[in-house]
């Protein structure tokens, strides 16, 4: 079977800094990582491959340096990596991104064999929209199975799949068919460490690199900024409240400061005192 995992290279959010004066994101020197949610989908694809046989292809759309993340995915155990990169993709919103990825997935199917399951991450930590996976599914007419917590059964013969999916009030057990698009829930598996031979192979592996044209994209108006219906009009810092926080005076002892704080809370919002007494009593 052929599994394709869509991954995105994102800045490591733990190390992002914002310029204190201009309020712009300071990207220089911020290390990049594979979007953490994508790793659960990668692991699930690798497990399925190990169980039923086949190949795992990794796909990313991004700047040339996104090949770092692809190589990382190869060291974890993927078989092949495809980088979709072109200046026409700059400024893509989720609709334009899903278009480009869907075209690349078609091309992957033609070039390396039909795709049975497309995996995406639940969401990214930078865009954080959870829209690209469903977008790709819709464009390729794949059954859409999001927030999957466990794949129970995959039967290559009947091309059916049984899985558990998180919904608002519980877990749905679903029976569906291939081809489909799956996003895995975080924590649904433990991501493996690659083996030595995978690392060696990854170091030498050639990363398949496609431009928009290579991926069979003819209408560039559907890509990048031009292909994006949403427009970011304004980026701004949130307003501080009209008055800054009233600072509680620090007394010689913590106990006295605590008294002052409680008095200040009750003075500003008298109702809280009776609410708290009730709550504390009911607890």
């Amino acid at each position: 079977m052929h599994f394709v995992v869509c991954i995105k290279q994102v800045p490591d959010s733990a190390q992002i800094r914002v310029h204190p004066v201009t309020n712009t994101i300071m990207r220089q020197g911020v290390p990049t990582i594979i979007n953490p949610y994508d790793l659960f989908s990668l692991e699930e694809a690798l497990r399925l491959r190990d169980k039923v046989g086949g190949e795992v292809t990794i796909l990313t759309m991004g700047p040339p340096m996104a090949s770092d993340s692809l190589r990382k995915a190869l060291t974890i155990g993927a078989d092949r990596a495809v980088l979709l990169t072109d200046r026409f993709f700059a400024g893509s919103d989720t609709l334009a991104t899903s278009y480009a990825l869907a075209q690349a997935l078609r091309k992957i199917g033609e070039t390396f064999g039909p795709v049975d399951i497309v995996f995406a991450g639940k969401q990214t930590i930078d865009g954080d929209t959870a829209q690209v996976g469903p977008g790709v599914a819709k464009r390729l007419d794949l059954l859409q199975l999001t927030y999957v917590s466990a794949i129970v059964e995959l039967d290559g013969e009947s091309r059916s799949i049984k899985l558990e999916r998180r919904s608002e009030g519980g877990v749905q057990v679903l029976q569906s068919k291939l081809p489909c698009m799956i996003t895995m829930l975080e924590g649904s598996n433990v991501v493996r460490r690659g083996r030595i031979d995978d690392a060696l192979r990854a170091a030498r592996a050639e990363i398949v690199t496609w431009s928009a044209k290579d991926a069979g994209i003819e209408d560039l108006a559907l890509c990048g900024l031009r292909g994006s219906p949403t427009v970011v009009k304004r980026v701004f810092a949130p307003a501080a409240r009209a008055e800054k926080a009233a600072q509680v005076e620090i007394a010689p002892t913590q106990a006295e400061t605590a008294e002052t704080l409680i008095a200040a809370i009750f003075a500003k919002a008298p109702a809280i005192e009776s609410d708290l007494t009730k709550l504390a009593a009911g607890f």
């Binding site: 800045p11 992002i16 914002v18 309020n23 994101i25 009009k233």
Partner: peptide, 13 residues
């Protein structure tokens, strides 16, 4: 928006 202290306003014109 990503990365700390900013908001952005988005339109679908």
């Amino acid at each position: 928006t990503f990365g700390g202290s900013l908001l952005c306003t988005i339109y679908t014109l």
